[in-house]
Design a protein around this nucleic acid. Structure first.
Lengths: 101, 101
DNA sequence: CGTGTAAGGAATTCTGACACG
DNA sequence: CGTGTAAGGAATTCTGACACG
């Protein structure tokens, strides 16, 4: 589960190199709740490869004029859907509803 | 081939956090030809997860008293062996020698 | 040989804020 | 709303070198 892709080890300057996004933009997307870097002991932000990919998606949507708030909503919906899919795949769909009867 | 594991994106400070090795030691092992970080535009060293793992192995050997030169020789031998294994696996072993006749 | 440290300079990172639109 | 920028301080990184052993 927790592979290299998800380890938060990349500093913001490298993220800038990798994504082309300005440091200001990267920090702003965090402020808006789109990404969640960790912090090193002394407060430096640390990102994962997964964060990099997410930032690239965010950049695409921003270019289309999508606002950060909408991007966030889209991300939450996608997450919800994938949770539902997980339950269906595991055959827990009925179990879930049976509990409510 | 070129996965997250091999991308050079980790700064030396983070490598220090991850391995417990001092910045001085990390630079010295490079000087001795044991690791090969890339450099960012402005000269900052960048390491991969593979480098991190290699550094941990180096640290183990150093604790056993193995000198950097010997560690390097071991690494070269391992590489040579894996190359031979590759050729055997691909059935190129004979092809290789046939060419020399 | 392997590692620590002080030295000096350059670039990074952080936060809070003002600017523009 | 989204992004740039100047501000001030703190911590990072780099190199070459001296120290010790």
């Amino acid at each position: 589960m927790s592979s290299y892709k998800d380890k938060k080890v990349i500093t913001i300057g490298i993220v800038n190199e990798l994504t082309g996004l300005s440091v200001r933009m990267i920090r702003y997307y965090e402020e808006r709740g789109l990404i969640f870097p960790e912090r090193s002991e002394r407060g430096t932000r640390k990102y994962s490869f997964a964060d990099i990919e997410l930032l690239l998606e965010i950049a695409n949507k921003r270019e289309e004029g999508v606002q950060t708030y909408e991007i966030k909503q889209d991300m939450l919906n996608e997450k919800k859907n994938s949770n539902v899919r997980d339950k269906l795949r595991r055959g827990q769909f009925n179990a879930h509803f049976n509990m409510r009867k």
